[in-house]
Write a protein that binds this DNA or RNA. Structure first.
Lengths: 148, 148
DNA sequence: CTATATGGTCAAGCTGCTTGACCATCACGT
DNA sequence: ACGTGATGGTCAAGCAGCTTGACCATATAG
């Protein structure tokens, strides 16, 4: 593998990721959820199952807990999440999605599915499955880095 | 394709892109080029062939020309690029990479090749080729968006 | 030759993040 | 039980990267 081929692959991967991010963001806005940036999506993904603390979010996003707390403030202010008392730790606050937050999460899923469907039209369904398997095997485990 | 599968694919793609960005950045730093952020890499890619104007860069990066100009200032100050008179337009200034800028570009290519080599070890060389072709076909053409 | 568009710069302001300090609560060792 | 350090969270100040707005110099069209 020559360096130029590696760069072509890297550029394509970055362009595809950037394009997908853009598509999802557009789709979410088109479904009526405004004032959100892509970074919020990564937060939603962490909150989705059962909620999380601000510090959990900070680790997941790779930012300070202050920054995570500000992000939560914003999501609360806009009605996507709310803070509850933590059932096991009186210091902590459990951040959970509101109904609107869940609706927004579903909107993001739909937008993603829409983009992926177009890939299916270009590559074929089977190839998209292959692509998913390949990406799952090379994707790192660590915290999602929401910015370049 | 269910939404959950689309999300799994999206998450894997974003994680792979984020991981690759991180790897390249680390590799560039390890080779002695400091004070650079991933966004600079996208600028380098545009400057590499024959140079570009600040406005060209702005369009390519999807930012204002003022922001692009500041980025150029920074690259000039750190010795990676220099401004020259534009051969055909007295208003414009042609921004070109210095020898150090080219060395940094090669370092980024090496770091990318290193990461891709690891993917080859996991997926096999043939599968990596397939991956590259697939990504090239779904990657959008537009301006590279250096931030999420 | 005027009029408008374009490349670039200067200046001010905003936003999202950081560092640093601090308080409340938890968990451990004695 | 109690002191001590670790941990979750907040408040405050500062900074970096970007934006908008105004402006000048040069190019291009009518």
């Amino acid at each position: 593998m020559q360096n130029s081929e590696a760069m072509a692959l890297s550029a394509a991967l970055l362009a595809a990721a950037g394009g997908l991010t853009h598509r999802i963001h557009e789709g979410v806005v088109a479904r009526g959820f405004e004032g959100l940036r892509p970074a919020h999506g990564f937060a939603f993904a962490r909150l989705a199952p059962d909620g999380a603390t601000a510090t959990d979010l900070a680790v997941h996003l790779g930012v300070t807990k202050q920054a995570a707390s500000q992000l939560v403030d914003e999501m609360v202010r806009k009605g996507y999440a709310e803070r509850r008392a933590h059932p096991e730790d009186a210091r902590a606050r459990l951040v959970v999605l509101t109904a609107r937050g869940w609706a927004c999460t579903r909107a993001a899923e739909e937008a993603a599915a829409e983009a992926v469907r177009e890939w299916g039209a270009v590559l074929g369904e089977g190839e998209v499955r292959v692509l998913r398997e390949q990406l799952l095997r090379i994707a790192p485990q660590g915290p999602v880095r929401p910015s370049w």
